[in-house]
Write a protein that binds this DNA or RNA. Structure first.
Length: 791
DNA sequence: GAGCACTGC
């Protein structure tokens, strides 16, 4: 017998009497839908996949200077009770007033007048990402002010503040939120241009993400990715144009948000001289309630090591306030297994068919589909086969089943299928997903969640200089998040394929990314922003000393740091490029006369950093043969890098039908487009850095690269990857030059199964084995030459 | 013979 348990309110799932208050929201839902918003007012049903709400991209006209503009001096304050009279477009008033957050706006304003930092916990659907900045823009402290700032050149009058930045971990989130808030906040009819160019051509809302910037003159609210704000910190360490920074989704704990928190803490605890005495307000927003350590981090504003010039006497602690807002979530019944399951596939199958047989396909809230969380592609595909086989034995009269896989490497169309309702109404959808459905995308219609309790996580091992990708138990927080996916459209049920004891034994939260990844980039980011002693930099979870030490050494080898640990000119140049430090080092080497292969190196790096492999995995045997035939002319015996180069060169020479071209070769069109964007960005940066002349525009005719040229390119890559090399041992295994580990060439590599004198690999991942990925054939002698620092 | 998910003036 399965044991039943309901979560308490702190788990983020509403129960008992809370259902009554939820029903209040339900009565208001038709209004919300009438104004064509999703029910939580901001979440796209297929966030991360659809791009339709992003508007036209890269239009230079809409780019306004992000620097200090002198015009706007704030908006007029509204009269009377703001609760009854929201500012902005009246069309959205009803929907905004129905949000759980609406009634708390005066409270939020009051708290931020009295405190520097507000930690706000608001569950999905509370409206925090869209409403909080709108609540604050009229505050007096939020207006731009002319002040005297002491700088290197003496006292200078400057404008400080006036804008609010809202950070997001993902680009789609930033752009869609900006569009949404622009509709709400901009008063319609003020400018005719709004109609022609969309809501973001004018008004008080803008965004800035990689490849896409829309910051109209007079922008008060700017949605940015975390990385973008870190980049801004490089040229404006005091964030002078901002009155407030709202850090959204901090619970995701990306490396960028951790670094950002450190810099914000420094600004908060500093003497504010760089801002002419004007304080910076910070709102930290989280969707999960476990924010104890975050609160402590910001309130412990101990200046030690963070502000050398500051006097150590009686500095007041940063005042941190805390507020929790209820979300709009239906109750979810949770079932654990009574015993640990011996076979996860078996348990999954039983659970799925039990749900399918016992539960109706529809109720008053809509469809009742199933979402199952599994660890990876392989598990998903084998489960799909089993389910489909078993579904054929279903008796007549029982609704049919449609199984839909959902994972990152799937093509756009295949991913889209998982979001659409089944064509036949009498068919139940079963979506088998990886972690992608936990945060990145929302599958509509889900009322049942099946959770296997595991996820694949990447973990960097500084000692070995490699990472592993293995299935590990998820955290409680993650389990709660998965459970919550069943209660977004109506009351739901969650079936956990593990015991309640197992649940209790799970870690409270996931390990933050900064503890799971190579801190090479993080350390360079700090060094470039003036942090001399990186070990003293305030971080919520500081990495082990050994990880930081390794990163410092590696940066020294790359030439980014001098012997005394200070950043070099090369290091400063490296941070200008939005690629990992070793790639940046390769770009710089490629621009020197010795290698002179910058265009080719940009092409290769664009392909590699565009996301997952541009070559899709092929499932069926027949399409494999077909694609392999097409891919033949792309494959190069020099290895994966020269194969990428050939691919992007042929792609950019293709002028007829690029989508068709990708389809034939089973190439990920999304990643290929991304690669072309990165290529354009890197080319632009290199021109700006005077590393090369403006290259000719596409399409350029394709000429296969000569073996001599590819040798030059590979030697150039060794400037960044000399440590990632291996030599063929007498027993035909590859042994790494550093560490003497045995590595196998990954099966996805064009060099899989081949024996070369030596190899260079850009990635090093332990899964089933110790695998080298992105592999090239090199000569052992080249490694020696590359380590010689004179070149 | 194998593929968690994001991201960067």
């Amino acid at each position: 017998m399965a044991k039943k348990r309901k979560t308490d309110a702190s788990d983020g799932i509403r129960v008992g009497d809370k259902i009554l208050s939820l029903s209040g929201y339900l009565t208001k839902r038709p209004k919300l839908e009438a104004s064509s918003t999703s029910k939580d007012g901001l979440t796209l049903s297929n966030e991360g996949v659809s791009t339709k709400n992003q508007g036209p991209s890269n239009s230079k006209e809409d780019l306004s200077k992000e620097g200090v503009s002198t015009k706007t001096e704030g908006l007029p304050l509204s009269q009377g009770d703001r609760r009854l009279k929201p500012i902005g477009n009246p069309k959205y008033f009803d929907a905004r007033q129905a949000l759980p957050l609406w009634s708390r706006q005066d409270d939020i304003r009051q708290r931020l007048r009295q405190n520097d930092v507000l930690v706000l916990v608001g569950e999905t659907g509370s409206g925090k990402s869209t409403q909080v900045p709108q609540f604050l823009i009229q505050e007096d402290w939020c207006q731009r002010k002319k002040v005297n700032v002491k700088g290197d050149g003496g006292v200078q009058e400057m404008a400080v503040g006036g804008m609010i930045a809202v950070t997001q971990p993902r680009r789609v989130a930033a752009t869609t939120l900006a569009h949404r808030v622009a509709k709400e906040a901009n008063i319609p009819g003020k400018k005719k241009d709004t109609e022609r160019h969309g809501p973001l051509s004018d008004g008080i809302v803008g965004y800035s993400v990689r490849f896409d910037h829309r910051v109209p003159k007079g922008t008060k609210i700017k949605y940015v990715t975390e990385g973008m704000l870190l980049q801004e910190l490089l040229r404006d360490p005091h964030l002078r144009q901002y009155s407030a920074i709202i850090v959204d989704e901090i619970h995701e704990r990306s490396v960028d948000v951790d670094l950002l928190s450190g810099f914000l803490k420094q600004i908060l605890s500093g003497d504010k001289a760089g801002r002419g005495g004007i304080p910076l307000k910070v709102v930290i927003m989280s969707a999960t309630a476990n924010v104890g350590s975050i609160k402590k981090f910001f309130s412990d504003a101990d200046p030690e090591g963070s502000e050398e010039s500051a006097p150590p006497v009686t500095r007041p602690k940063t005042s941190v306030d805390f507020l929790q807002i209820e979300g709009r979530q239906f109750p979810v019944d949770i079932t654990h297994t009574s015993k640990p399951v011996p076979d996860i596939q078996d348990a999954l199958l039983n659970t799925l068919f039990k749900i399918h047989k016992q539960e109706s396909l529809f109720d008053k809230h809509g469809r009742k589909d199933i979402l199952a969380f599994l660890t990876g592609q392989e598990e998903i595909e084998s489960a799909q086969r089993l389910i489909e086989e078993h579904a054929e034995t279903l008796p007549a009269g029982v609704p049919k089943i449609a199984v839909l896989p959902l994972f990152g490497q799937l093509s756009m169309e295949a991913q889209h299928k998982a979001f659409q309702p089944t064509k036949d109404k009498n068919t139940r959808k079963i979506v088998l997903a990886t972690n992608i459905a936990e945060t990145s995308v929302t599958v509509p219609g889900v009322r049942f969640v099946v959770d296997c309790g595991k996820a694949k996580v990447k973990q960097y091992r500084p000692r070995l200089g490699m990472e592993s990708l293995l299935a590990k138990p998820i955290s409680k927080s993650s389990a709660i998040q998965r459970t919550g996916r069943a209660g977004r459209e109506g009351p739901g049920k969650c079936f956990r394929l593990y015991t309640e004891e197992t649940y209790e034994s799970l870690e409270k939260t996931d390990l933050p990314e900064i503890l799971r990844t190579d801190v090479l980039n993080a350390v360079l980011t700090m060094k470039a922003r003036g942090i001399d002693d990186v070990l003293a930099f305030p971080l919520m979870d500081p990495p082990e000393f050994e990880s930081v030490e390794k990163a410092l050494l590696h940066l020294h080898i790359l030439g980014a740091l001098a012997d005394d640990g200070s950043i070099t000119d090369i290091g400063r140049k490296m941070v200008m490029f939005p690629v990992p430090p070793p790639y940046a080092r390769v770009l710089i080497a490629a621009a020197t006369p010795k290698y002179d292969c910058l265009l080719e190196v940009i092409d290769i790096i664009s392909c590699i950093t565009a996301g997952d492999d541009i070559f899709l995995q092929i499932q069926s045997e027949e399409t494999k043969e077909e694609a392999e035939e097409f891919r033949k002319e792309l494959r190069r015996r020099e290895g994966d890098l020269i194969t990428y180069l050939t691919t992007i060169q042929q792609y950019s020479a293709e002028n007829a039908d690029r989508v068709r071209w990708c389809k034939d070769r089973k190439i990920n069109t999304r990643n290929m487009k991304q690669a072309m964007n990165i290529r354009k960005q890197l080319r632009g940066l290199c021109v700006k850095q005077k590393m090369m002349e403006q290259p000719p525009a596409d399409p350029q005719p394709f000429y296969p690269i000569t073996p001599e040229r590819s040798a030059t390119i590979l030697k150039c890559f060794l400037k960044g990857f000399a440590l990632k090399t291996a030599i063929l041992a007498p027993d035909n295994s590859y042994v790494t030059a550093h560490g003497k580990h045995v590595v196998a060439v990954h099966p996805a590599s064009v060099l899989h199964g081949q024996k070369k004198e030596a190899i260079m690999f850009l990635e090093h991942v332990y899964t089933q084995k110790n695998y080298a990925k992105k592999v090239s054939a090199i000569e052992a002698q080249w490694i020696v030459e590359a380590v010689d620092r004179s070149g």
